[in-house]
Amino acid sequence: MKHDKTFKFITIGIIWLWLAIFAVAPNGLVFLTSLLQQGDNELVRLQLTLNSYFDLFNTSYLKIFLHSLGLAGCCTLVCIIVGYPFAFIIARSTSRYKGFLLFLVIIPFWTSSLIRSYAIVAMLKTKGILNSLLLSLGLIDQPLHLLYSSTAVMIGLVYSLLPFMILPLYANIEKLDMRLIDAARDLGANKRTVLLKIILPLTWPGIIAGSMLVFLPAMSMFYIPDLLGGAKSVLLGNLIQNQFLTARNWPMGSAVSVMLTLLMGLMLMLYWHSTKRNKDAQDLL
């Protein structure tokens, strides 16, 4: 049928055209920009150089990079530690409210993280609800200065990103074949061995997927340090924002963005590797 061929051609054509213009080309331009020089009058000077990348190893940038990595890493770790048992309990629950419990995680997942960060600001400020609560309970005598610190940024990041860890973990744990655990127990494995040798390896792809969805945004959500961290806590996202809008150093900002993309590539490879390995494990069954 001739019409069908035209239809197929047009459909796939539209999709590829859109992605080529708004996804492939822009990223190519970022890479290109990172290789250019900052211009004096114009935004960039058309001269190829690796200067921006060398500048990345400049101490002040390197410090931000490491600080951002550390903060995002800690945030991811906290999300795994808090989120894993949480996802496990819900996924393995036989309660008839299971759907509702899951729905209660989906709501924060979709709620604007700006609004949720604002809620944290309102909680943590010196005369905020947390301080009054702690004061009235007699746990502290002086209001804590929680806001505008790395701790506040950490709380804000975990608050915003925890649902992004829980949902992939939930999806993964729910598919877990309980017979494998029973089999391991029958063969004499203790609880620790079951957890370390069966449950964790099988839910590894979920952990990686969740970590990806937490770690990458945690480095880039510039408005969270803006609201909760004052000027003290700078993420990679703030660095990029600053290079683009204030310092007007587009090549530098692009180079940072390329580094972030490389980091994403690394995590994607890890993810694909882990799902592949698990498929092999499933085939054994």
Binding site: I15, W16, L19, I21, F22, A23, A25, P26, N27, L29, V30, T33, M212, L213, L216, P217, M219, S220, M221, F222, L236, G237, I240, Q241, F244, W250, G253, S254, S257, L260, T261, M264, M267, L268
Partner: peptide, 23 residues
């Protein structure tokens, strides 16, 4: 195409933001 859709979902917003700004 499959891979690109997946990558677009996980890629950090700021990377997409500045790529579109440059475009």
């Amino acid at each position: 195409l499959h891979g690109m859709i997946f990558v677009m979902i996980v890629s950090p917003d700021i990377v997409m933001a500045i790529s579109l700004l440059i475009l």
